[in-house]
Amino acid sequence: MTGQERFDAVIDADEKIEPTDWMPDGYRKTLIRQIAQHAHSEVIGMQPEGNWITRAPSLKRKAILMAKVQDEAGHGLYLYSAAETLGTSRDELVDLLHTGRQKYSSIFNYPTLNWADIGAIGWLVDGAAITNQVALTRTSFGPYSRAMVRICKEESFHQRQGYELLLTLCRGSEEQRAMAQDAVNRWWWPSLMMFGPSDNDSPHTAQSMAWKVKRVTNDDLRQQFVDMTVPQCEFLGLTVPDPDLEWNEERGHYDFGAIDWAEFWNVVKGNGPMNRERMAHKNRAWDEGEWVRQAATAHAAKQAARRLEQKSA
């Protein structure tokens, strides 16, 4: 059997490709790009929420938010590790992010303006992420699939804490309900955009589906998300900011309004409200952390030298 034949057989049998297996060059490239951008998104995703840690209204909410932001860092690490099994290095990937040659999800280029945004992010943004990532647990590349399994377990906490946060606000004062509605109004459409362009405008979807890197198309995932989320929104007593939203008895799904793709592409290309700030902050954090990395390296070298000394003494 040739490498290609063995690869095809594994994909056909719905088994996983592992890093040391032969794989088509395009498969490797697609995965490096997708996993790396997924990792970058997790890491940049720490910023909109980290922004609220000091201002969270209670010690409990601060602790929860810190745990969540720490999870995002962990998710970034799982994913970078998965990408590294494809023959790239952490330094290279981090550099691609810092120099803007690789992107992260556009959702993080929107600002978190009020406390309810933290709830909306957990419920809507992490909810959209879970929809996507549950599908990705069945992706054909083993390390990516395993990272998704681990991440999905943790995202469930994120989504529930976000919903509970909003529920608390919705059971509060008139002002608190207004805050919650304002946050949902601003995060609803960007959350729908997280699933990416419509299937008709996703030239790479067919190949990704054939390789089983992607298991469900953008539009199908988006529909799943809307169907799941609308009743949850009704329970909160909030409205979805879409006048065209309507249950379609015949399809058994919600119909929803047109997405503003011009806004989407504009943000992807770097012109969203927070693109520049997110990148500047990330680069600053990296530069300011240089002494920590140097110190850790120096400490490790010193410890190693000391052990050698003790051995020879």
Partner: peptide, 8 residues
């Protein structure tokens, strides 16, 4: 979170 960033 998620994040299949589309090709520009």
């Amino acid at each position: 979170m998620s994040y299949d960033v589309p090709q520009i």
